[in-house]
């Protein structure tokens, strides 16, 4: 065999140079390079549930904050003679949306009975004071969302600030700050909120926002602290320190961007919990008070007539449930999208 090999003669002419431009280019990157944000967005879009929730939330925000520009009805205008009218959409004959009610076995055209003209119609009916329910729900949703968002923002600021400081400083400061969190989180959240809401002027948004924000930040602080502890020993932080970067600047430029996924995910779960607690406080009567409305007060008002006019509670309740669902589902989706380990 070996002898035979020697017999083979290889001449330079046997080889033919390949065209350099032809063939696969191993250096070329096929897909455009994505930033972290783009990657997250791409993964989020491929998660149907989360993406639907996102769209639903966008719509809800548009309706709550911009709806009154299109639907010109004062949420506080009372029309006592049109009190407790059921939903009526012109041209819809479906029972429950045609202004008819089942009263002691008979189908009654409530609008006619109230002496309302042909042009009077309330899409979602009216409440016990004759206020347009759709306008009130839009207004109530806006208040609920405003409270939840502001509370979450405060919550986030305190939590992230506290967490970064605690994790960065370490030592005694950290030990003390951790004890503070420990003590705070072994007090039932609800109790603090009730105390805050009763102590500071029974009404108004500010006290509810304060109540929700004060109690909610401990989880955020814990998460950011844990993450900061991990990050602060990494080389890029060491490099920044060696270059003489000041601590606040490191926190802002290097820590925060790396904490962003934890913060965003936690925020997505803080918002629905803030919405819930606002509704809860308003429901038991220490939250928003009339003429202001929130989803909680609307449900509480609607409950009084639930037996006869179920729509008065159903509609605000459905809005509340959809909001809670959408935020929770989007939060779940975000958690998956931000997790680079979940490859999909």
């Amino acid at each position: 065999m070996a002898d035979n090999l020697k017999d083979i003669e290889i001449k330079p002419g046997d080889f033919e140079p390949l065209d350099k431009t032809a063939g696969p280019d191993n250096e070329r990157i096929a897909a455009p390079s994505l930033t972290f944000g783009q990657d997250v967005w791409r993964r989020l879009k491929s998660n149907k549930t989360a993406f639907t929730s996102f769209i639903v939330l966008v719509l809800m925000f548009l309706i709550a904050f911009g709806g009154q520009a299109v639907y010109h009805h004062d949420p506080n205008a009372q029309e006592p003679k049109y009190a407790n009218l059921p939903p009526k959409i012109p041209g819809v004959g479906l029972h429950g949306l045609n202004g008819h009610l089942n009263q002691s076995g008979k189908d009654v055209d409530v609008y006619a009975a109230a002496g309302a003209g042909k042009d009077v119609h309330y899409i979602l009916g009216t409440d016990y004071l004759g206020r347009d329910l759709l306008a009130r729900i839009m207004y109530g949703t806006r208040i609920s969302l405003e409270i939840a968002l502001i509370a979450t923002l405060i919550d986030l600021t305190i939590g992230v600030g506290f967490g970064i400081l605690s994790g960065w400083k370490g030592g005694r400061v950290d030990l003390f700050m951790q004890r503070v969190i420990e003590i705070l989180s072994s007090i039932p959240q609800l109790v603090v909120m009730v105390l805050m809401a009763t102590a500071f002027t029974k009404t108004g948004m500010a006290s509810i926002i304060a109540a929700i924000a004060i109690t909610g930040w401990t989880t955020m602080a814990r998460l950011t602290r844990a993450q900061t502890l991990q990050l602060k020993n990494q080389d890029f932080i060491l490099a920044a320190r060696t270059l003489g970067e000041s601590a606040p600047k490191i926190a802002w430029k290097h820590l925060l961007p790396n904490l962003s996924s934890v913060i965003i995910i936690q925020t997505m779960f803080t918002i629905p919990s803030a919405i819930f607690f606002e509704a809860f406080l308003s429901y038991i009567g220490i939250g928003i008070s009339s003429p202001q409305a929130s989803l909680g007060t609307l449900i509480s008002d609607g409950q009084k007539n639930f037996q006869f006019l179920p729509y008065q509670m159903w509609y605000p309740a459905i809005v509340l449930i959809i909001l809670m669902l959408a935020f929770n589902l989007l939060g779940d989706g975000m958690r998956d999208a931000f997790d680079p380990k979940s490859k999909r």
Binding site: A279, Y283, Q303, F306, L320
Partner: peptide, 22 residues
């Protein structure tokens, strides 16, 4: 399970009371 989180206890209580009670 997600409905259990999204439906507030007071709404659920009212619905149960009306539909299964009354």
């Amino acid at each position: 399970s997600i409905l259990g989180i999204a439906v507030p206890s007071f709404v659920l209580a009212i619905l149960l009371q009306y539909y299964l009670g009354l």
